[in-house]
């Protein structure tokens, strides 16, 4: 279990993580979702003691990781940056890591096998592709067969088979009762892996809920088209119903199910030329949540005609 309490990190005047509080439970996969620069990596670095919090504290299995006597068996960590000396081979890197914690060579062979790095175990890490580096990072994280797995953007650079493998791995680890905390900036990825989602934007926790709530909590939305739009608006007006004119004949209705809308139109004798329920996807929910919290927004705007 990871308990984050009022965690804050300032770099100079900039607040990267802002009073973040959440708990990552064992036995499930918890996704940590946010746009680039939202503070995901910084939060993870603070959890494992690489960055010192400006305020607040983090407990991993009830204690500060910095005082851990069994760090590698307690927490397995993969951070975004390649964290291996590039002149080392995967084998010597893992053997050095294992030696620190008194783990045997046999475990090194196991994780090399497990991550598919067996054939390149004596090649220098400097020549590795992003995907290979990522596999080595995962091998390092799994080395101590840890109780808590913290993976920062683990699918970066992996091929589809690798992505599926990570998903599988996360599920299995969680099923075995481990705490699994995975960050991503892609909702689609999290939707397939996580049971619980923590959404961060501009350093603040914006949502912390089971993944099912992200899909269900939005109200039904329907697009309705009718010639007698004014009449239709009168017929639909009720408490809990939001109406928005999209154009002369189109209306966006938030609140009632589309079947209700159809029935009321029938009762009022209005002919509908379109009745279309809007699918609210996880992606929409995520975009909505983080719309105002995107640090690096792409600059593609209409008022910049010729492009530059």
């Amino acid at each position: 279990m990871i308990q984050v309490q009022e965690l804050t990190k300032n770099y100079g005047a900039k607040t990267v993580v802002d009073h973040a509080s959440f708990t990552v439970q064992p036995g499930i996969v918890t996704g940590f979702l946010g746009p680039n620069g939202a503070g995901k990596s910084t939060t993870m670095r603070m959890i494992v003691g690489l960055a010192n919090p400006t305020r607040g504290q983090v407990l991993v299995n009830g204690k500060n990781f910095k005082s851990s006597t069994h760090p590698l068996t307690e927490v397995g960590t993969l951070l975004e940056a390649k964290s291996v000396h590039k002149s080392l081979t995967p084998r010597s890197h893992l053997r050095a890591m294992a030696a620190t914690a008194g783990l045997g060579k046999s475990r090194v062979d196991e994780v090399l096998e497990l991550t598919g790095l067996g054939p390149v175990q004596r090649k220098k890490v400097g020549g590795f592709s992003l995907g290979m580096g990522q596999r080595l990072g995962i091998a390092t994280a799994l080395l101590g067969d840890p109780q808590v797995l913290i993976l920062d953007e683990p699918v970066n650079g992996l091929d589809p088979e690798g992505v599926a493998w990570i998903r599988n791995l996360a599920r299995q680890q969680a099923a075995a009762g481990k705490t699994v905390f995975i960050s991503s900036h892609l909702m689609s990825e999290m939707a397939q892996t996580a049971d619980h989602l923590i959404v961060i934007g501009k350093g603040r926790i914006m949502a912390d809920a089971p993944i099912s709530e992200f899909i269900d909590n939005g109200l039904a939305q329907t697009v309705v088209r009718a010639r007698d739009i004014e009449l239709l608006m009168n017929a639909l007006a009720a408490e809990g119903v939001q109406l928005r004119r999209l154009d002369a004949t189109t209306l966006e209705v938030t609140g009632p199910e589309s079947e209700d809308i159809g029935r009321r139109a029938l009762e009022a004798g209005i002919v509908l030329s379109e009745l279309r329920p809007l699918q609210r996807t996880l992606e929409d929910a995520y975009m909505e949540l983080t719309r105002d919290a995107i640090e690096y927004r792409s600059q593609v705007s209409n008022d910049n005609p010729a492009g530059k």
Partner: peptide, 17 residues
């Protein structure tokens, strides 16, 4: 890449740094 998670062959006693 194996999709099975190799279970530790024996309970590990190591881990202390």
């Amino acid at each position: 890449m194996s999709t099975e998670l190799a279970a530790p062959a024996a309970p590990r006693t190591g881990g202390k740094v």
